[in-house]
Amino acid sequence: MTLDAGETLAVVGESGCGKSLSAMAITGLVPPRAKLIADRIALKGKSLLGLREREWRGIRGRRIAVVFQDPMTSLDPCYTIEDQMREIGRQHLALDARALRARMLDLLRQVGISSPETRLSQYPHQLSGGLRQRVMIAIALMCEPELIIADEPTTALDVTIQAQVLRLLADLQKEHGFGLILITHDLGVVAGAADRIAVMYAGQVVESGPTDTVLSAPAHPYTEGLLHSIPVPGRTARGAPLGFIPGVVPRPDAPHTACGFINRCSRPVSACATPIALMPIDPAHAARCIRPCLGGQIVERHPATETAA
């Protein structure tokens, strides 16, 4: 996966597909029992592989910030909002106490919090879910990061608040120019919010491309199946059966000896019994499929020659 400066990439997939793990690998934060193997992970050309803990300190929170799904568990219930914002500021910014407080108030205003002085002295439980997520975004912005990873930032929020928080992230991105990786299971969230999509399935990216292309002309049968299974008011006939993907996701410990989607695919052939590479369809759009759908037609591709190209 790649992300340009100021761009939003949505990483989409169902639970257990590896979308959070992939994004967190960028920050070097993988579970203790996991081993991260990568050819290259780089931020603005500088490799992030094999960094020491001391070197990470200059990157996490400063150049890369993370906004998690549930602000109640990522904010410490025992400390006020001011304490938690100050901690990040002290760690990374050379500001005196007064300048730091001014910075905190400014950030809270930027994320749409109307009485920032009051909020600073409050504890997380005194804030609503939407306000807590705004505080998390303010903390993420503290050091003007180049990259923000937002992991299901609106999943725990009500529908009207969800739209506001997504809008806020988009507005702040325009102003601050950070790159945004938006991890979500909700293709509806992606539609308005992301420039590009990477669809993940069973630990692999199965399709990637510009949002509008992937949503209007999905090439991979998994993407296609997902889009057909979601009711859309005004488009799907009310009450008519919805599309669905038969079967279940392979277990994470299943060996990668075939296309991971073969057992649920609507159009498998014998050649699908070998691992399939992510192959380009055009310079911006790629699919891990030897029979992708292009312009409404199933196209046959040959895995060996395509992989070599």
Binding site: A163, D186, T211, R235
Partner: peptide
């Protein structure tokens, strides 16, 4: 506020704001 997975969608600007 319904977010629909269709191309060329924009994020809605809601007419309500407070929580």
């Amino acid at each position: 506020a319904i977010l629909v997975p269709e191309a060329h969608r924009r994020l809605p600007r809601l007419t309500i704001d407070a929580e």
